Simulated assay, not measured.
Amino acid sequence: MPKPRTIIIGDAKTSVSLENEFWLALTEIAARERVTPRILAERIQAACSNANVTSALRVFIIAYYRVKANRHAAGQGADGEAVEAAIAAVRGLDEEEAAIMARRRHRGAEAGAP
């Protein structure tokens, strides 16, 4: 069950509800990349201005481990590309959220038109 926790992104406290396994994964990824979970969350948030932070964190974590698993299956060593690939996945989420918001605004404008 998701547990709400507070994380500081930039200068703002943000509440996110993630399952414990996602929190553990976030801290593991941060440790592997030699950054704090806060810095990692700030990078993820910077990649998405429209997406929900909780969704962005989940997408990032899944994308990160997918890249790692694919590199392992291909016999390639680990490198720093997993974070950048996962950030790109979050940007894709952000683009989807922006498109959804634009469609909602358009429908709202049509509903209010005489």
Rank of each mutant, 00 (worst) to 15 (best):
G10Y: 08
A56Q: 03
E110M: 07
A47Q: 14
T6A: 13
R91G: 02
E21F: 00
A47E: 11
I7T: 10
I62G: 06
A30C: 11
A73I: 10
T6C: 12
C48V: 07
I7Y: 03
F60M: 05
R38M: 11
R58E: 06
E21R: 05
Q45M: 00
L40N: 05
G92V: 03
E95V: 12
T54M: 02
Q76M: 13
R105I: 15
A98P: 12
G10E: 04
S49K: 10
E19S: 14
R103K: 11
A30E: 01
T54F: 02
A12L: 01
A31I: 01
A111S: 07
R66S: 07
A73K: 14
R34V: 08
A73V: 12
V83W: 02
G80D: 13
F60S: 01
S17H: 00
A69N: 13
R91P: 00
A88H: 13
T27S: 10
G10T: 05
A30H: 06
Y64D: 06
Y65W: 02
K3E: 09
L40F: 06
I29M: 00
E110V: 05
V53S: 10
R38N: 13
E110H: 12
I9D: 01
H72L: 13
I61P: 04
A78P: 00
A73R: 12
G92D: 13
I8M: 15
R5V: 04
R91Y: 02
R66N: 13
E81M: 12
I87N: 02
D94W: 05
S55N: 08
R105S: 15
V83E: 09
I39F: 15
S17R: 05
R43M: 06
F60I: 08
